[in-house]
């Protein structure tokens, strides 16, 4: 009886980390920097943090689905560059609105291609997306001749710089993407299938789930959200640069998802966690910048936070009696 109570307490505490640990960390970081820097606690700065966190967070929605399904995509940075320069170059021809939609459609299609290679040709996701990382980036260079594509279209620029009631449009987009992702994950059969496939693909197959279809679908989702991010980020800079757009982006997105409590092996995961993680990383970076912490130390801190969080996470699943 005592043994049982202890176990249920353990499980409770472990489960609470997901819903309490990350918010606690975020609040801690925000309070800490608010005390240390008067600039940090200004409204302007909070909005700035949210805006730059949204660049990572929007793609993190797709990536979280992908990792929950037990897969992985490191081609997102290059994909962002390729669809960014393609879409931006269409603007003069088809107009801003159509170009934005086309960008998102193309990146969803590229995600579909990734998914087909991985499921039908049985090439591991790591290899496929590693290869695609080079292919997409190089195609971006080839298409543009390594010349940046400037964006001079109000609609496209609005996606990155516009404001609704004083709030930057990317922040609103981020919220919409998370609400949409959350509903999909928790309220639709698709969400349950993704978790089932990630937990045990064999068992999912046996219970009648089309595993390949689910996997292809999550890669399409990755592409879809990367397409949105690509528009938002290039709009923020007013230019789509084939070499610099999305450079190192894949690791920022994966860091946010993993820090958010999604297991790299698939199965369990949390969208809210990924959002919080993106905000934590953004606040840390902004706060350390304001404190004039050297950029090398910033990376030490970010790396340590990631390892610390994953260690806690591992512990948590051990306590819940699951394999981490």
């Amino acid at each position: 009886m005592v043994e049982l109570q202890a176990r249920s307490l353990r499980v409770k505490i472990a489960q609470q980390w997901g819903s309490l640990g990350l918010p606690f960390l975020l609040v801690a970081v925000v309070i800490l920097f608010s005390f240390l820097s008067p600039v940090f606690r200004t409204q302007f700065n909070f909005l700035s943090i949210l805006r730059f966190a949204s660049f990572i967070a929007i793609s993190a929605v797709g990536m979280a689905f992908c990792i929950m399904a037990g897969e992985f995509d490191i081609s997102v940075g290059s994909m962002m560059a390729l669809v960014g320069v393609l879409g931006a170059s269409f603007v003069p021809v088809i107009g801003g609105f159509a170009a934005v939609l086309t960008t998102i459609a193309i990146s969803s299609f590229l995600g579909f291609v990734n998914g087909i290679f991985i499921t039908k040709l049985k090439i591991p996701a790591f290899i496929t997306t590693l290869g695609m990382m080079f292919v997409f980036r190089s195609l971006a260079y080839i298409y543009t001749d390594n010349v940046s594509v400037y964006i001079d279209n109000d609609f496209w620029l609005y996606m990155g710089n516009g404001r609704v009631l004083g709030i930057h449009f990317p922040i609103i987009l981020m919220v919409l993407c998370f609400v949409g992702g959350y509903l999909m994950l928790r309220k639709t059969p698709f969400g349950r299938y993704v978790v089932a496939v990630g937990t045990n693909a064999k068992a999912a197959e046996l219970s009648g789930i089309h595993v390949d279809r689910i996997k292809i679908a999550v890669f399409v989702m990755v592409g879809f959200f990367v397409g949105i991010s690509s528009v938002v980020i290039s709009a923020n800079m007013g230019v789509a640069n084939p070499g610099l757009l999305g450079q190192g982006y894949e690791f920022q997105v994966i860091t946010a998802v993993v820090l958010g409590g999604t297991l790299l092996g698939g199965g369990n995961g949390s969208l809210g966690g990924a959002l919080l993680a993106a905000l934590i990383l953004g606040s840390l970076r902004n706060g350390m910048n304001l404190m004039q912490v050297s950029s090398y130390w910033q990376q030490v801190v970010t790396g340590s936070v990631l390892i610390f969080a994953v260690a806690i996470n591992r512990l948590r699943y051990t306590l819940m009696g699951q394999e981490a």
């Binding site: 730059f52 660049f55 230019v239 640069n241």
Partner: peptide, 29 residues
């Protein structure tokens, strides 16, 4: 990192500096 460049310039604006000098990684951005 071009995104960080933009973020940094915005942060400097938020800090209320009086003037900014930039050596930009992506001058177009």
């Amino acid at each position: 990192d071009a995104t960080k460049m933009v973020e940094d310039i915005n942060t400097l604006v938020g800090m209320g500096v009086d003037a900014i000098s930039i050596t930009p990684v992506d001058p177009g951005a």
